[in-house]
Design a binder for these strands. Sequence first.
DNA 1: ACCCGGATGGGGAGCGCTCTACGCCCACGG
DNA 2: CCGTGGGCGTAGAGCGCTCCCCATCCGGGT
Lengths: 349, 349
Amino acid sequence: MTEEPALTRGEPATLDDVARLAGVSPATASRVLGKSTRAVRPELREKVLDAAARLSYTANPHARALARSASDIVGLLVHDIADPYFSSIAAGVTRVAEEQGAIVVLGTTLRDPEREIEYAATLRAQRARAIVLVGSRTTDPGTTSRLAAELTAFRSAGGRVACVGQDGLNVPTVRPDNQAGADRLARALTGLGHRRFAVLCGPHDLVTARERLDGFRTGLAASGGTVRDVVEGAFTRDGGYASALELLRHGTDATCVFAVNDVMAVGAMAALRERSVGVPEELSVAGFDDIATLRDTIPALTTVRLPLEEMGEQAARLALTPNPADDDEPALLPVSGEVILRESTRRLV
Amino acid sequence: MTEEPALTRGEPATLDDVARLAGVSPATASRVLGKSTRAVRPELREKVLDAAARLSYTANPHARALARSASDIVGLLVHDIADPYFSSIAAGVTRVAEEQGAIVVLGTTLRDPEREIEYAATLRAQRARAIVLVGSRTTDPGTTSRLAAELTAFRSAGGRVACVGQDGLNVPTVRPDNQAGADRLARALTGLGHRRFAVLCGPHDLVTARERLDGFRTGLAASGGTVRDVVEGAFTRDGGYASALELLRHGTDATCVFAVNDVMAVGAMAALRERSVGVPEELSVAGFDDIATLRDTIPALTTVRLPLEEMGEQAARLALTPNPADDDEPALLPVSGEVILRESTRRLV
DNA sequence: ACCCGGATGGGGAGCGCTCTACGCCCACGG
DNA sequence: CCGTGGGCGTAGAGCGCTCCCCATCCGGGT
C-alpha cells in the first residue's frame, strides 16, 4: 500500500500527493486548490478536496510565491511597536490583513529612515503583496527620495503601498489632519482663556511634529495667543519628560504647554509632577493623538483624538484592495482630529 | 550588449544573472552569496561579490526557502498587540530577531486558542525557523494538547519553538514565577498592615491568572491575610474595570484589592475613581507585571515587576539559538518578579 | 614518473507549485 | 458523416536557488 505516502512519510503532503490520491493530474489539483479561474468538473473537484483533507494538505507558500512571483505577505513598518500609538495602529492593520488572508511581517525601524528603506527592499525581495508604512516622514530629502525610489520599484513589481502619516511619498495615504487639529486645539485653549503657550515640539525634522506646531501657531494667531517657548526633543515619552524639564529650567511665563503628541505630554506631566508644578492649576498641558492608555492618566489629558486603530484598518484596506486609480492619483483619506478638553487644561478666569 | 540584462530588464537580478556577469557557474555564485560552507577561491569570490553589487542582487527568499526547505521566518504569536504587556515583549522579540537576520511574522490570536493553533499550522507550512508563543496558556486540555501536537510536528520538521508564559507545552520557556511573585506581594501587603483582600482574578481558565491567585493565597496564608472576595473577569483593562465595579456592587470589607495583572489594576482604579473610592485612602490596589505605561499612572501602582522586553529577548534567543539539549529537556528560564511598593497601597496603622 | 587525495569549479537534478500549451471528447451544424 | 469549437484534462516547462556528485587541477609521497 503506497497509495497515501504522505500520510506515513512524516513530511507534509505535496500537491502531487493529493493529485495522486485523487487520481487526477497535478494541474487539476492545482486548479481546485489554488486560486485558479478555470473550471473543474464537480466530480473531480470533490475528489481533490477530499484527498486534500485526508492528507491535511497545506500548500507550500514558498513554492507558490516562487511560481507566481507574488506572495500573501504584507509588510507593516512601524517606528516602535512598544509605543501605544503604533501598537494601536498595528492592531488595526493586523485585523484587516488577517481578514484578507494576508500574513503580516512586522518591521521595526527604530525611527531610522535607513532601516525603513532596508525593510522596503527586503519586502520587495519577498515579493510582498503590500507595504504599510506607519509614522511620520522626515524632512530629509535624501532618505525620503531614496525611500520613494524603493517604493516605486516595489510598486512597479506589482506591490502595493499605503502610508499612515503624510503624503509626499506619492502613495495612498491615511492622513491625519495635523494642521487643522492643532489649529482647533489652539483655539479651544485660547477659548479657555490661555494666551501664552509653550510647545514641546519634538524633532525639527519630523513632518508630523512640524505640522502640529504650524497648525497650533496658526490657530493661536487667529485667536490671540502666542507661543512663548519652543523646546525641541525626542518624539517619545522620555523626550517629553526631558523637554518639560528644560522648559522649567529656562523658566516660562506660559500658562499652557502643548506637547505635539500624547506620549510626550504624558512624559511632560511626569516631569511637572516631579517638580511639583500642579497640572492644571499652575500649568495646563495638552497633547495630540488620544492614545488608548490616556484613559488612565491623571489628570485626564486634553488632546486631539485620532481614531488610531481605525486608521490602521483603513491603511491596510488601501494597501490590500486593488484600486487602479492609485496609479494616477493615489488615494488620500483625510482623518480629522477631534479636540477633547479634559482636566489637564484649566479655564483661566 | 546583453551582458547585464538585469540592469535593463527591470526585473530583479537573479543568481544566474550574477553568475553570468561574474563569469562563473551558478553553483559558485550560490556558494559565495548563500550560506555555504564550501570554499571559493578569493579571486572568484571577489568577482561574484562585485557582480552582485553591480546588479544590486538580492536573493529571492522564496526560492531559497523552497530549495532548502527552511526559511528565515520567525513567528511571533501574541494575544493582543495593543496591550502594553504584549507590545513590550514583542519589542524585545523583534529586536533579537532582527539582529539574527530573521523576519518577524506577527500573529494576533485575540486570545483564541484555536487561532493560535491555526497560526502555528500556517507557520509550519511556511517552514518557519521558529515560533515564539507569548501569553498565558489555558487550562483547557483539548486545545492545549492539539497545540502541543501541532508544535511537535513543527519541531520534528526542524522548527524551533519558545514560549513566554508557562511550560506544559514541553518547549523551551521563559517562565515568570507567578506563584512566588504573588506570594511575595502578599507578604509585602500584609507587611503594610493589610489583612483582608479582594482579588480580581481574571478568567478561571488562564494559567497565569490562576498561578497568581494561588501564590497570593499562599503568601497570605503564611502572613496572616485572607481573601474575602474573588471576582472573575476578562484579563484586560476593561475586565478590571468591570470586576472592580462588581466588587463595589457586592460590597467588600477588604482593605486592599489585588488585580492579577496591571492592565486590570489600572481599569479597576478607573472604576474606583469613578465611584469616588479613594486609592489608597479607602482601598489599596496592587497589580502585576509593571507594564511601561505604569510610569504615568496616578497613584503609582504597586506591582510585581517583570522585565518584559528582556523576556521577549530571551525567548527569541531560545527560539533562534540552536540548543540540542532542548530535545531531551527543554530549557526553562525562570524569571522572578520584584515586588515594587508604590503609592497605590497604603500602610495601615 | 605515477598515484592519491585535497581543494575547487561546474553540471544538473530537484524543491513544490503555477500556467501555458496542447489534446481529447462530445455536441452540433451543414 | 465530417468539420468545428467549447469544455476540461494532462504534459511539461519553468520560477530562482541549493547541493549532491563528478571533473579537474595540483602538490606530495614513494
